[in-house]
Design a protein around this nucleic acid. Structure first.
Lengths: 145, 145
DNA sequence: CAAAATTTGATAATGATTCTCAATAAAAAT
DNA sequence: ATTTTTATTGAGAATCATTATCAAATTTTG
């Protein structure tokens, strides 16, 4: 069992929840995605690889992964929530091209520190943060489709 | 007619759209809100003050205001989009308390500059950006329901 | 004022997400 | 290992924010 699975199992145990076969499947599928995905994409991926897992179960499981600190709901795009796993991932922010829908990730650089200081000032305990820039990417501006 | 209305009118004219009574009502209601609001709140406010404006029209008008550069869709909270006007507003970011739902605004300080530099590096033209911190506010942590 | 073009309101439709509940699987107890 | 308890699953119904439709009403133009 890999690290993420252990983290998840511990998390579940603490709440007297069970690490089931289905949850394991979802966990694996999530970590197979190294960029953003939405529920439907995940559903299709799982369906293709394995027997069926119901959409409902995915919707139920993702929040658990978020609470376990393994997953992050990182942006909303085309009326869907998008997720990305965050296990040993660099923090990053997103440029979202509103023309082609492409998402560019960038290291968050000095921003994180600034945010931490601000939060401290307001005595606010940050669980997670999200930075999204919307605009037009270079490719789209130079006529590229 | 105040500044915002002029901006809006020019915007509409450019697209051969009309600055109707209803659109004016919505514009005014939007600018009466000096913090975040969702569509339903706006709908209630307008309804209380004036005769009815249909929800559909509000949903149709807000994107126009966004495109006109007067309004920003700033965060999603409780499955609803939240807006805030941005006319002569300081840029700011948001701390969103996930326990009480409260939204704290903070000046974006040095972050803006960093972001601009990053965008330049990637040759990405930012139209707007959004920074949301999720966590627990001081009040909630000290037991204050 | 009449004609052309856009807008509106009411309501139906859509689509992502959540809920329900009977059937199933996992863990605990025996 | 079998039973008992408790949590989980899948399928589909239900919700609810947002969009689309369309005939009636407004606005602008000629």
């Amino acid at each position: 069992m890999d690290d993420q699975a252990k983290v998840f199992e511990n998390f579940l145990k603490k709440r007297s929840l069970k690490l089931t076969r289905t949850r394991r499947l979802i966990l694996e599928a999530v970590f197979r995605n190294h960029d953003h995905f939405d529920v439907d994409t995940l559903y299709d991926q799982i369906k293709t690889r394995h027997q069926n897992v119901s959409r409902a179960t995915i919707y139920r499981t993702l929040p658990l992964l978020v609470q376990a600190g393994l997953l992050k709901q990182s942006l909303r795009c085309q009326d869907k929530d998008h997720y990305e796993h965050i296990y040993g991932h660099e923090r990053h922010l997103h440029f979202l091209c509103t023309r082609c829908g492409n998402i560019i990730e960038i290291e968050s650089g000095g921003i994180e520190k600034i945010i931490r200081v601000m939060a401290e000032e307001k005595d606010f305990k940050i669980m997670e943060y999200n930075i999204v820039m919307r605009g037009i990417c270079a490719n789209c501006r130079t006529g590229g489709e």
